[in-house]
């Protein structure tokens, strides 16, 4: 262990999973999600991923992409929940 908490290999924050800080977990309801990407814009982490996966909603609308949350880094701040216009993100207490 280096003295004085010196980090000998910098640029390693990607190795530090901050997801375990979370108490509440945002869960995207793909059916309600309009792919507006406000969550992606506002997420300070950023822990919102736009993934290449098609999704057809119950009303028959076909999306080319899906929006997902990277739970390795999502700290559960709830900003996405607050900003989501169609209220497509649920905020669920996590029991670990």
């Amino acid at each position: 262990m280096p003295a004085g908490a010196v980090i000998m290999e910098p640029g390693n924050s990607a190795e530090r999973f901050t997801g375990d800080w979370r108490t509440f977990k945002p869960v995207i309801n793909q059916d309600k999600c309009t792919r507006c990407l406000r969550c992606w814009v506002f997420c300070p982490e950023p822990a919102i991923s736009i993934v290449d996966r098609q999704y057809t909603s119950s009303s028959g609308r076909a999306w080319k992409n899906s929006v997902e949350i990277n739970y390795d880094y999502c700290k559960g701040c709830g900003i996405c929940v607050e900003e989501c216009e169609p209220k497509a993100i649920d905020f669920i207490e996590e029991v670990k």
Binding site: M1, A5, V6
Partner: peptide
Amino acid sequence: RVVLDTKKPVTMGAVANPDWYYETKYQ
């Protein structure tokens, strides 16, 4: 000694959360 050097970068004075702060102080 380990110093700040652009040719061999290190991070000094970073955060230490509860999992490492105590050990650093004990050093």
